[in-house]
Design a protein around this nucleic acid. Sequence first.
DNA 1: TGGTATTTTGCAATTTTGTTTCATTTTTGA
DNA 2: TCAAAAATGAAACAAAATTGCAAAATACCA
Lengths: 155, 155
Amino acid sequence: MQQLDKLDYKILEMMQVNNTVSQRDIGEAIGLSAPAVQRRITRLRETGVIRQDISIIDPEYLGSPITIVVQVEMETDKVTIINETKERFRKTPQVQQCYYVTGEVDFMLIIMVFTMKEYEALTHELFFNNPGIKRFKSSISMDIVKYGLAFPMPK
Amino acid sequence: MQQLDKLDYKILEMMQVNNTVSQRDIGEAIGLSAPAVQRRITRLRETGVIRQDISIIDPEYLGSPITIVVQVEMETDKVTIINETKERFRKTPQVQQCYYVTGEVDFMLIIMVFTMKEYEALTHELFFNNPGIKRFKSSISMDIVKYGLAFPMPK
DNA sequence: TGGTATTTTGCAATTTTGTTTCATTTTTGA
DNA sequence: TCAAAAATGAAACAAAATTGCAAAATACCA
């Protein structure tokens, strides 16, 4: 993907908040025709700038969701162990996000489950059954103050 | 919103991964006509089960994004102070997510910036200029292992 | 259990949106 | 300055979403 211009930024800015706006409306907002907008969106998707298009679901309507921020400390820095662990986290559906971080701990996880029983089982699966893991600390969320993936466009 | 049924779950399951699939395709996958799917989606949106529809953008294409997990500890538990702080986090565009958590710290933030200068300025704005905040700890992400908001449907 | 009211559904028609074509304009690079 | 490449808008086209309506399924109550 060659350099993005200001029009691309504006399109991304709109779509990272609402990707159901029509190309006509986007075009009107930024001063382009619908086909021009459509070509840009297609290219943004093909090149991976737009990585995914999703609905954000409010889990409150599906039960009593429990969000937990988990800090994971590893025994070792061995690349193979780290990579295996990453792969396991990636494949676990309850893990919404996983960051490999600097500092005292190695991983930060955002996990969502619907019961504590489910979380307990998950900790066994993810942590206790994994010899590479030294310890983990769970912080339970009492309030999801902000929830999204949007960020300000640079410059 | 009255009780969701299995068909709603399936629709949500599909759309939380890709909300550009056509209603016809969804209908085919779950055994409903396109209009039936459309009515369900409309209701899911109106009632807030589907909270938002967005494009996920890969910030790598816009510069050198820096993701930071920040743990924030407050001086006090006073509700007004806590609420003001929540509101500030909510309104800050660089804050992607904010969880109010149990344990040693009070808030967990996922922050994205494009330069350390920007982060430094942000810490002043959010933390140093806020007397309610006792201390904060930044963990810089070296690798975003997993990145999303999807979760497994219950049951 | 039987009957009625309510809701949900599919089909067909309509409307809106997305996509393609093509000639023109703009930008790029030599 | 000029030629090649890229991007654009208008119009035509295709596909998707939406609406109206009658039939089927479900829920409710006597």
